[in-house]
Amino acid sequence: MIQIQTFDYKPGEHEAEKASNSYLMSLIALIAGLPLPIINLLATLIFFLGNRKGTYFVRWHCTQALLSQFSLFFMNTAGFWWTIAILFKDSTVNNIYIAYIFTLVIFNLTEFIATIYSAIQVRKGVHLHWWFYGGLTSAICKKTL
């Protein structure tokens, strides 16, 4: 799921720290934003915008962190509004809802672990390429600004 790849150049200490912070940012936002999924996305987006003029290594990892938040954002938002509908409207708790919440837990937990691992490795200057998100990031993120 996560591959170690050789980056185009060896990132400096400062770059590795910044790139690692993009994962930490999404990690903290993930914890803070659990009740309101939009918070994760906003926090990562703000960090991404702040670093959009950074070096290629920093931009690449900020983009990967942001993209990985997108799919979770949609999944969590659906779960959030479904729960609201159960609490305040006429929807009821059924097997499909509980299964959805468990699926969310599995996906969020996987993302959580992958993010911690990435933050640690990227801090050491290791270039981690996530399954799907890595390919998408490479397609979006240009080497030169």
Binding site: S71, M75, V93, N94, N95, I96, I98, A99, Y100, F102, T103, I106, F107, F132, L136
Partner: peptide, 21 residues
Amino acid sequence: SFLLLALFLFCWFSLAQINWT
């Protein structure tokens, strides 16, 4: 991306087979 979506749906519908309620 299709595989990811399929994995999500598979996970959801498999879990929905269990009588959680």
